[in-house]
């Protein structure tokens, strides 16, 4: 599914990211994303997470190839969830600057909302970085309100 211009604009904002997969027994794995890169086809996104903090994530993705990432703008709760099939890809040197940029923007946004910096540092680390490549099949609005849970192609103008 191709990400529309509104979503491309959304991804320019400071964001937080939570991610999940599930193993072959159906047990979900949960974690936090600490960076991303949208590919030029606008249908694929690479999401970076810490293999040190979330070791079950990689294992689950390798088992089932199913993955989801929810991105939220902390200042106004605007939230989108991306779902699809995924594979692990090798971490490259260029991934780290993407993560550093993401972490710096998220930290500044959360600090401005009064969240203490030492807490944010517990959540956002790029240690033992892993990258999952998601082919986006579905995008859902998850902003609290009447459109929550709807597919974006249903609610887009």
């Amino acid at each position: 599914m191709r990400l529309d211009d509104r979503l491309m604009d959304f991804f320019q904002r400071p964001l937080m990211c939570i991610i999940a997969s599930a193993d072959r027994t159906g047990q979900p794995a949960a974690g936090r994303g600490v960076g991303f890169e949208l590919l030029d086809d606008r249908e694929t996104i690479d999401v970076i997470f810490s293999g040190w903090q979330w070791p079950r994530m990689e294992q689950s993705i390798r088992e089932t190839g199913k993955f989801t990432a929810t991105f939220v703008s902390p200042s106004d709760y605007v939230t989108f969830q991306l779902k699809g099939s995924a594979t692990m890809r090798g971490t490259e040197a260029s991934d780290i600057p993407h993560a550093d940029h993401f972490i710096a923007a998220a930290t500044a946004a959360l600090c401005s909302l009064g969240v203490p910096p030492h807490m944010i540092a517990s959540w956002l680390t790029v240690r033992d970085a892993r990258v999952v490549r998601l082919s986006v099949r579905e995008v859902y609005v998850q902003t609290p309100g009447p459109l929550a849970g709807m597919l974006t192609d249903v609610v887009s103008p």
């Binding site: 939570i18 991610i19 999940a20 997969s21 599930a22 072959r24 159906g26 047990q27 979900p28 794995a29 949960a30 089932t64 199913k66 993955f67 989801t68 990432a69 929810t70 939220v72 939230t79 969830q81 779902k83 969240v115 807490m119 998850q142």
Partner: peptide, 19 residues
């Protein structure tokens, strides 16, 4: 104080994650 996170999976194994 800080939102929790819930991850679930559908019958077909597709995960879902939200605050």
């Amino acid at each position: 104080v800080i939102p929790s996170i819930i991850a679930t999976a559908a019958a077909d194994g597709m995960p879902n994650v939200s605050y």
